[in-house]
């Protein structure tokens, strides 16, 4: 079994396929918080993108290099000052938004450096999460696998929250996919979707 097989990766991370569907062949991509480089690798294999990842963890730097993707070690929280304005077609933030401290400046930076932004995040409004909270506990699930005391997630939000946030930031949402597992949720997405993927750009 190959760890980098595109089909297997897409099955394991349905947001990958959703993201890839929006990215044309040969686009330039900056993946913030790129982890082990799986998404970039997937986009390289399926979309022939020219891409770079930004990642802070030592072990992920090694994993990215092994994955054959470009990775720049750095802290997203200190901004993207090394990157020129409009340098990329797309700036991605996959399953990282909720773990950023300075979320608002980071989204602004994404849209300075990239023509369009794509984020994916766990939907806190997903009914199972709501049930957990109603029962009196912080949710722990596949999409939110952490206990309250060890979670890196400091800025969890719902679909509604994110869309309000975009409006306040003068950011236009171009597209949205909401999923639970690998199925797309078109009905009551803020309730039935566990993961959201948004594509957006500057300006109203």
């Amino acid at each position: 079994m190959s760890a980098h097989d595109p089909i297997e990766l897409a099955a394991a991370r349905p947001d990958f396929a959703a993201i890839a569907a929006w990215i044309p062949q040969g686009a330039s991509v900056l993946d913030l918080g790129c982890g082990d480089g799986s998404l970039l690798r997937y986009l390289k294999d399926t979309r022939k993108v020219r891409g770079y990842g930004v990642e802070i963890s030592d072990s992920n730097i090694v994993a990215c290099i092994r994955n054959g993707v470009n990775v720049i070690q750095g802290d997203l929280e200190s901004g993207l000052s090394g990157f020129e304005s409009n340098a990329f077609d797309f700036v991605l933030l996959s399953q990282t938004l909720q773990a950023t401290r300075h979320t608002e400046p980071l989204v602004r930076e994404m849209l300075r450096v990239g023509r369009e932004g794509i984020v994916s995040f766990p939907n806190f409004g997903y009914w199972k999460n709501r049930m957990n909270v109603l029962r009196g506990n912080m949710p722990v699930s596949e999409a939110l696998p952490y206990q309250w005391y060890d979670t890196p997630n400091v800025h969890l939000c719902t679909l509604h929250d994110f869309e309000d946030f975009c409006r306040d930031l003068d950011v236009t949402v171009l597209d949205r996919r909401v999923m639970t597992g690998s199925s797309e949720m078109k009905l009551l997405p803020n309730l039935l979707g566990s993961t959201a993927v948004y594509r957006f750009r500057r300006g109203a």
């Binding site: 330039s28 770079y52 730097i61 290099i65 990775v71 720049i72 750095g74 090394g82 020129e84 340098a87």
Partner: peptide, 10 residues
């Protein structure tokens, strides 16, 4: 980066 070279940095 500005020259679109493949580069990794640790």
């Amino acid at each position: 980066l500005h020259n679109h070279r493949n580069v990794s940095y640790a």
